[in-house]
Computed example of a mutant assay.
Amino acid sequence: MGMSVIISAATEQDTEQILKLQYLGYQSEAELYGDWSIEPLTQTLESLRTELAERHVLVARLGDEVVGTVRGWIDADGVGRINRLVVHPRMQHHGLGGRLLRAVEDRLLAQGPVRAFQLATGHRNLGNLRLYTAQGYRQSEVRQAAPGLSLVTLEKPATQPLATAV
């Protein structure tokens, strides 16, 4: 009997699994840029607990296992900021990243008002760039973040969430 992946708000009990998944998921990013000191790899449990209290943190669960996560918040300008989208490597390429992205967008729209969504990724992360483009995001800025690393900012206008079937 197969299990379905369920997306829900993260809880305090999820923090260790989120941090472990984040560490696993950002290994490839660190390797791409030769930088193992990136913040997702050095974040502490206490810092993650603070984010859990201040931002929307969603998880994708397969049974009791956290296999995906994403974070979002609305800034003072009404921009829904999205970051730390991570999907377990064995769960990638099955649409889970897109589902998490839409779920956090819907959560931010429900909090509202949101005029646009914005996220960023490294210029060499072609998989992320493809995913975000497929989800309607368009490049709005490229800036040098460090030697050998340019951050690509992508944005899309906010729209109302689709009605979900009950």
Results as ranks from 00 to 15, higher is better:
34 G>L: 05
34 G>N: 07
34 G>Q: 06
34 G>F: 05
35 D>C: 08
35 D>H: 08
36 W>N: 10
36 W>Y: 11
37 S>F: 13
37 S>G: 15
37 S>R: 09
37 S>E: 13
37 S>A: 14
37 S>L: 13
38 I>A: 00
38 I>E: 01
38 I>F: 00
38 I>H: 02
38 I>R: 00
38 I>Y: 00
39 E>K: 09
40 P>K: 04
40 P>Q: 01
40 P>W: 00
40 P>H: 00
40 P>F: 04
41 L>S: 00
41 L>G: 01
41 L>W: 01
41 L>E: 02
41 L>T: 01
42 T>S: 13
42 T>K: 12
43 Q>N: 08
43 Q>H: 08
43 Q>P: 03
43 Q>D: 07
43 Q>C: 07
43 Q>F: 05
44 T>G: 12
45 L>K: 11
45 L>F: 09
45 L>Y: 11
45 L>C: 11
46 E>V: 12
46 E>D: 15
47 S>A: 14
47 S>I: 08
47 S>D: 08
48 L>N: 06
48 L>C: 11
48 L>F: 12
48 L>D: 06
48 L>R: 07
50 T>G: 15
50 T>N: 14
50 T>D: 11
50 T>W: 12
50 T>R: 14
51 E>W: 11
51 E>I: 09
51 E>Y: 12
51 E>Q: 12
51 E>G: 13
52 L>S: 03
52 L>P: 00
53 A>E: 14
53 A>W: 11
54 E>H: 04
54 E>Y: 03
55 R>I: 11
55 R>E: 14
56 H>I: 15
56 H>S: 15
57 V>Q: 06
57 V>P: 03
57 V>S: 06
58 L>D: 12
58 L>Q: 15
58 L>G: 14
58 L>Y: 14
59 V>C: 03
59 V>Y: 02
60 A>K: 01
60 A>G: 10
61 R>G: 10
61 R>E: 09
61 R>S: 09
61 R>M: 10
62 L>A: 13
63 G>I: 02
63 G>N: 04
63 G>R: 02
63 G>A: 05
63 G>C: 02
64 D>I: 09
65 E>W: 08
65 E>A: 15
65 E>D: 13
66 V>H: 02
66 V>L: 06
66 V>W: 03
67 V>I: 10
67 V>P: 00
67 V>A: 07
68 G>I: 03
68 G>Y: 03
68 G>C: 05
68 G>V: 03
69 T>W: 00
69 T>S: 09
69 T>N: 06
69 T>G: 01
69 T>I: 02
69 T>H: 02
70 V>M: 07
70 V>F: 05
70 V>G: 02
70 V>Q: 05
70 V>I: 11
71 R>Q: 15
71 R>H: 10
71 R>C: 11
72 G>Q: 05
72 G>N: 09
72 G>C: 12
72 G>T: 07
